[in-house]
Design a protein around this nucleic acid. Structure first.
Ligand SMILES: [Zn+2]
Ligand SMILES: [Zn+2]
Ligand SMILES: [Zn+2]
Ligand SMILES: [Zn+2]
Lengths: 129, 129
DNA sequence: CCCGCGGATGGGAACCATTGTCAAATTGAC
DNA sequence: GTCAATTTGACAATGGTTCCCATCCGCGGG
């Protein structure tokens, strides 16, 4: 019996921030943004809600080079990301060829329960100048 | 003026372990293996040597789902990995098409200084049964 | 509208991989 | 062998994230 998450002020605030952001952001960045917005939310709560949203596939998560987990509200469906290291600006990209390639490689070597990670990092035009 | 690294017992021991392993392993796992082998090396030293080897591109590094950094001595040249989550067994894979695809996507959106990460995780035949 | 259950919150402690510190040991050139 | 410079290692510190638990509050029932 799975219970529906409660509609709390904190949950709404986190969701609203994600709605407004267009790039990936860390839990701590989101926590700061909430404070500046006056909608203060405990750091633990921010982590919990982000994780819950990520688990239910409502938002995407990825790890940057520093080992931080970044979150973003993306379009639905499987896709990958072109992310600016400096500002977080993100372009969603689809690579059907890559998907098939990865699956066939794995099958070829007898691997099951297969998943893949693919992200492209760079510096966007804005940040480069 | 870059000085050549010294040929210490510890550095040799770490290199020897990497030589013998065929899958990815964490710094702590390697530290344990060294102890069991009788060639005890300080944990900090294991970390330092692995990082140095990784920086000089003599070994590959990747992060698993738990956020740990894993290391492996691979063949030279750019490639990706099919890794067993359970035992670390690894198959090196090349994907020239993916390389070109990633670069063109990035260029298309005006990103520079581009890099990509691509790993395939699964459960290998052995571990599945 | 009022109660009461159980999920949600938050502040601080705990975790844990990794990095920093620095005195002591080791290496390698001369 | 001597000596400066690098490396080591035990331990402390870091930092993102998770855990703990007393308190709070959303929400369904009465
Ligand atoms: Zn996405
Ligand atoms: Zn994909
Ligand atoms: Zn490799
Ligand atoms: Zn590649």
């Amino acid at each position: 019996m799975v219970s529906t998450p409660r509609n709390t002020r904190q949950r709404r605030a986190v969701a609203a921030i994600l709605e407004d952001l267009d790039g990936f952001a860390s839990a701590q960045e989101i926590h700061d943004l909430l404070r500046h917005r006056g909608e203060s939310v405990g750091l633990s709560t921010v982590y919990r809600n982000l994780q819950a949203l990520s688990d239910s596939a409502e938002i995407d998560a990825l790890r940057n080079d520093d080992g931080e987990t970044l979150y973003r509200q993306c379009s639905t469906g499987h896709h990958h990301h072109l992310v600016c290291r400096a500002c977080g600006r993100t372009v969603e990209v689809a690579g059907p060829t890559v998907e098939r390639w990865a699956d066939s490689i794995a099958a070829e070597h007898g691997f099951v329960d297969v998943a893949h990670t693919l992200e492209i990092f760079g510096t966007c035009g804005n940040c480069a100048s």
